[in-house]
Design a protein around this nucleic acid. Structure first.
Lengths: 239, 239
DNA sequence: TTTATGTAAATTGTGCGCATTCTTATAGTT
DNA sequence: AACTATAAGAATGCGCACAATTTACATAAA
């Protein structure tokens, strides 16, 4: 019965990441605990975890709120990614393994396929995954973890600030990064990565984002959906 | 009365970072709560925080233990630093501000002075601070935070694996990084940084580290010391 | 009309006690 | 002697009830 915590965390996390909850919305402990069918203490622990990852904002004696990142914070995230991912590709260019290289190539093909298919959801997923693959190629656990956090927060930013109809055609940019890596040209790889991230950053627009009505309702629906899919409803019916 | 939590956290943190606690030592909730004069619940929260920063290891249903990083983990930390700090100096070389440059120069002078004075403790402190100054020069909050975590864990590694008498004469290496930055030579700066970190890494030795007797005693002594210095004893006497 | 103040409702924070789980010691069996 | 089973002990995990804090609202004075 420890896994339910993880399940709730995942549900809330993906809801936050995909922008299904309005920024600034209060997340009260009791209603949430009620919706997910757990005690308030457990709910508290989950909210604490979400808070450390900055997916929600925790204010002492006030409670938890859906994170409402400013454009300034958004710029900081992208700047951090330019620095960190610049370091990653610079490091990778000189010593990437053939196995990782092959994996990346497969990924680029998958990205292009999704793009031509017009599968937008898959495209954004793969787009994020490309960056995670690069992080994993370093073999450093710490780097993977940090990139995971940055990619998560970037996803939330995109959900909030992206003007919805923007084309995610980052595929060629990813390929140019890959090409530079394969050529062993660390400087070109770094430049390509920075340019790519800067380009993505410029797509952010201040307006945007006013999706959900009731936060707990939204989460409740997602939770029911997930439990139905798992075949394990959280409410057991009599015989 | 929220600040006491921070104070306890700081005390434990610095004790861990300076290697005053033997790796693997169990940190039981009740004795610690007793020593610090707080409830067990509060102690639990503090241990949780220390756990997220990997200063202690948290095992479900088993408790908290002083972190005992393996050499493999140590290598991962240094590899991460080469990647991240390589990215930092590469980023900085092209656009470092004159104010940051001046701050760095002052710092180098202070390092050299401490070294000539033979002040070993100050030397290691300044040595870590140099890297934090570089992180701060990026202006990115996220980067500073991540570097903080990496530097912390590095400090613990050094306390555990360093053969005690190693000379911390990294001053020239720091200067060569600085010089490359001033020259705007990003490639040279990256190379210098990586070389520096690799050199520090090679100083780690498997043996080492068997300092403290009783963990709670040690922490209790540090706590008493701190409270005496603050002039605010944690036990109030009647009138 | 605006501002200050006091009170009530709602929400988060925390100590306590018990439930759960893991470890250790002991006895019993092969 | 070695291995398993079982019970006792100790430590963590967690739900509950109460305490502390903040917010909202009503009321009264300037």
């Amino acid at each position: 019965m420890r896994n339910i915590e993880e399940a709730i965390y995942d549900t809330m996390s993906s809801a936050l990441l995909s922008g299904q909850l309005s920024p600034g919305t209060p997340l009260r402990e009791n209603p949430l605990a009620d919706v997910f069918g757990v005690s308030r203490e457990r709910m508290r622990k989950i909210l604490l975890r979400l808070g450390t990852q900055k997916l929600i904002e925790l204010i002492p004696n006030r409670g938890a709120f859906v994170a409402a990142p400013s454009l300034a914070q958004a710029r900081d995230i992208y700047e951090s990614r330019r620095i960190l991912e610049g370091g990653i590709v610079n490091h990778l260019a000189s010593l990437i393994g053939s196995q990782d290289a092959q994996r990346l190539q497969q990924h680029l093909a998958a990205e292009q396929a999704a793009l031509q298919r017009g599968d937008r959801a898959e495209s954004v997923r793969l787009s994020a995954e490309f960056h995670m693959l690069l992080a994993q190629a370093t073999g450093s656990h710490f780097i993977v973890q940090q990139m995971g956090e940055l990619v998560s927060r970037t996803s939330m930013l995109v959900a909030m600030f992206e003007p919805a109809r923007s084309s995610h055609c980052a595929c060629e940019e990813h390929r140019s990064i890959y090409d530079a890596l394969m050529a062993g040209d660390s400087e070109a790889a770094t430049r390509a990565m920075r340019a790519h991230l800067s380009l993505v950053e410029t797509r952010l627009r201040p307006g945007a984002a006013a999706p959900s009505g009731n936060a707990v309702e939204t989460l409740g629906a997602l939770w029911a959906l997930r439990n139905a899919a798992d075949g394990a409803p959280h409410e057991a019916a009599g015989p």
